[in-house]
Amino acid sequence: MCFTDHLRQENNDIFALIFEHPFVQGVGNGTIPDKALAHYIKADFEYLNAFMQIYGIALAKSKKREDIAYFFDQINFVLNDEIHPHRNFCDHIGVKYEDLQGHPLPPTADHYIKHMMYHAQMGTSGEILGALLPCPWTYLEIGKELMKQFHPTRDHPFYDWISFYASDEVEKTTTEMRSRLDILAANASKSEQDLISEAFRKSCQLELKFWEMAYTCEEWPGEKKVTNQ
């Protein structure tokens, strides 16, 4: 069993909770409050910006051209492809994508980004991939799980979102990142492997919390809301 197989096995409890979360199930059955969808997009837009920045840090640490090319391609994928599922949600709630960009991060998203940034700045290449991998991996499995559970057709309100994350392209992205992490872990010490495992699990936990953050429209304590008089 390879290193990432062990990671998946060790975190099966969190993956199962993600599949069962009401936001994820709501994507499957097409019933999510518009407010929760908007809250998700606001946070995820900023999260993906940070994800690209972390790829950029990994690229800067790369010494081989093949590694530089890999991270360059991943930035391009997030920048140009992952806007499509966001637009699916925006179209459903009738809000312009641009209107949901540039908003402050809720607490969970803020924590998640800083967790990944810490490993990007302070950790090894293995730690960086360990912290990043749960994002594409959980989304891939969510897409496949929702396809299996709900068999969405093109008239499903979130067909584009589900089919995107269940796609061969996302599977390729996940498999490629797993393969890179397996190689790094095979040459890492036990202590470094433990740090990678810790980074991976915390990111899995924060993926779960991210869905909860969106579903509950989480805000900072004491946040003042602007109301129209």
Rank of each mutant, 00 (worst) to 15 (best):
R65A: 05
Y40C: 03
A69P: 07
A58H: 03
A60R: 14
M52C: 12
N11E: 06
D13T: 00
L37N: 04
V27R: 00
I18N: 05
H21F: 02
D13G: 01
P33L: 13
D34S: 14
F23D: 09
D67F: 13
I75E: 12
F45E: 13
K42E: 12
A43T: 06
G56D: 09
F71Q: 06
T31W: 08
I68P: 03
A16E: 13
N12H: 13
L17I: 05
S62F: 07
D73V: 04
S62H: 07
T31D: 15
F45D: 14
A58Q: 01
F51C: 05
Y55N: 01
D44M: 09
E66H: 14
L37K: 14
Y55D: 11
V24E: 09
K63M: 02
A58W: 07
K63I: 06
F23M: 11
I54G: 05
I57E: 09
T31S: 15
K35G: 04
F45V: 13
Y47C: 02
V27A: 02
K42T: 06
K35Y: 09
V24A: 10
A36H: 04
L48I: 12
G28D: 10
M52V: 12
G26L: 04
Q25V: 10
Y70N: 04
G28H: 10
H21N: 10
L17Q: 15
L37C: 13
D73C: 03
Y40R: 06
I68C: 00
Y40S: 00
G26E: 09
I18L: 13
D67C: 01
A50L: 02
F71V: 08
K63A: 04
V24M: 07
Y47P: 09
F15L: 15
N11R: 13
Y40V: 00
A50D: 07
K61T: 02
K61N: 03
I41T: 13
P22M: 04
P22C: 10
D73F: 02
E66A: 04
H21M: 04
F71T: 01
Q25S: 08
Y70S: 01
G26D: 06
F15C: 09
K63H: 09
H39N: 08
K42F: 09
K64R: 14
F51I: 01
I68V: 15
L17F: 02
N49T: 07
N49W: 02
Y70K: 10
P22K: 03
T31L: 15
F15R: 14
G26M: 03
D44P: 00
L37G: 08
A38M: 11
S62P: 07
Y40H: 13
L59Y: 05
I14M: 06
I57R: 02
G26T: 07
G26C: 01
T31M: 12
E20A: 15
E66T: 14
L17E: 15
I14Q: 03
A69H: 10
A43K: 01
A36M: 10
P33V: 11
L37Q: 13
D73G: 07
I68W: 10
E66Q: 14
Y47G: 05
I41A: 10
I57M: 11
E20Y: 05
L48S: 00
D67P: 05
N12R: 14
K42N: 09
V24H: 09
S62W: 07
P33T: 04
D67T: 11
